[in-house]
């Protein structure tokens, strides 16, 4: 029993944190809102160089051959920086999916995606938009249980507007071609795996978003004075932020355990319940979503009016939280999924 990341995993996390601290300040996130993607593109190139995008690709395809477990701390850092871009959909969902399909599809696309030469977008049933569908070189889309690789030239995209303007995407109208990548049982299995990975990757990002919101609010509450004292010396503020710290602290091990279960099979199972990896992922997504939403709510309240202004950066993180808490199943949906498994 060793519920702890290795030094190598922590070093990779720190390297990603450094990259983002340099390349992804709030101004980059804000610029992405205005449609200037030069900053996020640079971040993406940096992540490709570090091997993050191809982390789950095989070494034969230019990847690192690592797992969900190795990616989870990195995704939390990307969430902390609110870095724009479909990292979950690409590194966590598309790359392992293409590897699983194998053959010429994997050989053609995985190395290019890992190196940042090509972009792939993934459409999962139930989601309101296909993230970065417009700039993609390849679309992975399901039609029922059938998974298709679709040429973006063959589809029509209706652009949707996310509350988080740095999340760009739309609905894709398309006709399934004659040669799906997978059908039936196999297609369903790939879809389930994709949904689990998307939910867990998003949960890891939500942890980072929540941490950032807590950190900036602690700083603000320390600097901001009213009645001649820092507002953060008042218990009304302290107790709100302590609640956020508790929520994040107890969501975190659920996320890490779910990553382990995805990588190696269900771990630390409560023998009285029918626990699967899917149940572990749902626990992680529900808890991380709730914790990040609490962080957003209390961050806004503790900032007061300045936090409610468009000019202040707080809303960039809050809106990402709202978008991601709802994506790939919100907390209630995931708890209902758990209820069906354990009750």
């Amino acid at each position: 029993m060793r519920f702890r990341f290795t030094d190598e995993q922590l070093e990779l996390r720190d390297a990603v944190r450094d990259l983002l601290a340099n390349e992804c300040p709030a101004s980059v996130v804000r610029a992405a809102w205005e449609g200037d993607m030069s900053g996020p593109d640079k971040v993406w190139a940096g992540l490709c160089d570090m091997g993050v995008v191809g982390l789950m690709a095989t070494e034969a395809h230019g990847g690192l051959g690592l797992s969900d477990l190795d990616l989870t701390l990195i995704l939390t850092e990307v969430g902390r920086a609110a870095a724009p871009g479909p990292l979950v959909e690409t590194a966590v969902v598309a790359v392992p999916l293409l590897e699983k399909i194998g053959g010429s599809v994997a050989e053609t696309w995985v190395p290019r995606v890992a190196q940042g030469e090509s972009r792939v977008a993934v459409g999962l049933p139930g989601e309101s938009l296909v993230l970065d569908a417009s700039g993609a070189d390849l679309l992975l889309l399901w039609h029922g249980d059938a998974l298709h690789a679709v040429d973006p030239a063959e589809v029509s995209i209706t652009v949707e507007t996310s509350v988080d303007r740095s999340r760009r995407g739309g609905r894709v109208a398309w006709e399934p071609g004659p040669q799906p990548l997978a059908v039936g049982e196999e297609g369903r299995r790939l879809l389930d795996a994709a949904l689990e990975r998307a939910a867990l990757g998003t949960a890891a990002m939500l942890l980072g978003l929540g941490r950032h919101l807590l950190d900036v609010t602690v700083t603000y509450a320390t600097d901001r004075h009213q009645f001649g004292v820092p507002i953060g010396s008042q218990q009304a503020i302290k107790h709100k932020l302590a609640d956020v710290a508790v929520a994040l602290a107890f969501a975190e091990p659920l996320v890490h355990r779910a990553a382990y279960s995805l990588a190696r099979g269900p771990a630390l199972v409560d023998e009285s319940a029918r626990e699967t990896t899917a149940v572990h992922v749902s626990m992680a997504k529900a808890a991380a979503g709730d914790a990040a939403e609490l962080a957003a709510r209390h961050a806004l309240q503790c900032h007061g009016a300045i936090g409610y202004s468009f000019e202040h950066d707080l809303h960039l993180w809050m809106k990402r939280v709202w978008a991601l808490a709802a994506a790939y199943g919100d907390a209630r949906m995931h708890r209902e999924r758990i209820a069906r498994a354990i009750l």
Binding site: V218, T222, P230, S233, L241, A242, D243, A245
Partner: peptide
């Protein structure tokens, strides 16, 4: 909660 706020988060004491 005071302990968490002051010793974990580093918020100022009263």
């Amino acid at each position: 909660r005071n302990v968490v706020a002051e010793r974990v988060l580093g918020l100022p004491r009263k």
